[in-house]
Every structure is written in structure tokens, then in C-alpha cells.
Amino acid sequence: MRRVEQVMGFPVSLRIDDEGLPESAADAVFAWLHQVDARFSPFKPDSEVSRLDRGELPDPSEDLTEILGLCEHYRTATGGAFDVRLPGRGLDPCAVVKGWSVQRAAELLRAAGAKRFCLNAGGDVVTAGGPWRVGVRHPEHADQLCTVLQLTDGAVATSARYERGDHIIDGRTGRPATGLLSLTVVAPTLTEADSVATAAFAMGAEGVEWAAGLEGCEVFAVDADRQVLRTPGFPTAPTGETVA
């Protein structure tokens, strides 16, 4: 089963290799992701996030409370480099919402009986079964890969400048993060991989060591001097075809 839909401003592709799994399993994934977009997008004036930011939502939902708790965890852990409440800007928890919601979608698939699948949300990937080969785009050449990794059950996320420019702000300075061109994190869940990748990128060069020191995380980074930094356990794949 294969399906692609545009959600939250980027393409989400789903591949399920299990035979006999009903289409309703994929329907549930995309219905959930569209619901998340409606509830937590800071760009939708009637979303929970926008209403909370305007002071119109005195009691956040359980899901939003969980998201904000994760945001606060990474703000504290990075000394303020990662911050979803930057001065002069509205509340924007997108860096946590994406990975959190796609991980939840993967859990819906597992609950439906899927054992081998790949869920790719704008380049951030959750896999089950496998092995799956995942390519990481070169930070300066869109038609090239800088590495290919191999995952069985896990997640990978990359933060970089190449899609949205200098969109990641170092909350300590209020200026765009510098020091890295891209940073990829492999972790057990996409909630962690995506949040850590963004938080570490916001920290700049020091973020590589910080992310590498987190339990269960492996890191591949390209710094501003074009040097490649990787942890010993980063699951680099043997040469071969990239399928995700």
C-alpha cells in the first residue's frame, strides 16, 4: 500500500508492505495528521495554539499540554537556544508538533497490525520492520546525498537551512542559528529525533556534542566549515539503492 498527501505544508508519504492491511489503516493516519494541523498550527487563527497564544484557551487540551511540556523540556535542556516563545513572535511549537504527531501516526499503524512500513513526513522518517535505507540530502546540492543510513525500527530527522533558509532561531541571541549546515538525528521515536535535531541545530556547533550525549541518539552533522561530524553508532548503510 502506498499513499501520498500534502499535510502541514509538506508531502507525507506512507508505504506499507504488510499484505491484507485495510485501507482504513492509511485513512486513520492521514485523518489524524490533518486533525493535528487544524488543532496545533500557529498559522490557523482558530487552532488551539493560536487561541492559547491570544489568551482565549484557559485550559489547554491534554495533547497540547504534552506538546508544551516537551517544548519546555528542550528549552531548559538547551539553555534557551530552543524556544517556541521567541520575543516579538507568536507561540510556534511546530518543531515539536511534527515529530510528535507523526510518531503518533506510526503508533496507529502498529495498532492496526502493520509490521513493516515507512512513514516519511517531509524528510523526517519513522520505520518499522525492514531494513529500510534512508537518504539524507546534501545541505548544498539538492541532487546529491551526503549519507545513506539503514533503519529497522526507529526514526530519523534532519534540520537544515536548505528548504526554509535561516528559519531556526537561537533563542539565546534572537538571531538565526549559525555553525551548522545540517544535522541529522537517529532516535527510537520521531518525537525525540525531530525535537533534538531542531534543538541541537539552534545551539549551533555545540549542539552536535549535546545531541550525541543523549541516550539513544546518533548524530550526523555538516558544520559551517563543511566538516562532517558523526557519532560512532550512526547507522550508515552499505552502498545501494535508497528507498525512503
Rank of each mutant, 00 (worst) to 15 (best):
Q6M: 14
V12H: 10
L14V: 05
G20E: 11
L33S: 12
R39P: 02
S41C: 08
F43A: 12
E48Q: 11
L52H: 13
D53W: 05
G55M: 10
P58W: 03
D59F: 08
P60C: 04
P60L: 08
S61E: 11
E62D: 11
E62M: 01
L68A: 08
G69K: 04
R75K: 14
T76L: 14
T76N: 13
G80W: 03
A81K: 01
P87Q: 09
L108M: 13
L108Q: 11
L109W: 05
A112H: 07
L119D: 05
N120G: 04
A121W: 00
A121R: 00
G122M: 07
A128I: 00
W132M: 02
V134H: 02
V134F: 00
V134P: 02
A142V: 09
D143V: 03
L149R: 01
Q150E: 15
D153I: 02
A160G: 12
G165A: 01
I168M: 06
I169E: 06
R175Y: 15
T178R: 14
G179V: 01
L180S: 02
L181A: 11
T184L: 02
A187S: 05
A187M: 06
T189P: 03
S195I: 08
A199S: 12
A200K: 00
M203H: 02
V208W: 04
W210I: 00
A211R: 00
L214Q: 15
E215D: 14
F220H: 09
Q227N: 15
V228I: 14
F234E: 02
T236K: 09
G240C: 02
E241R: 10
E241Y: 07
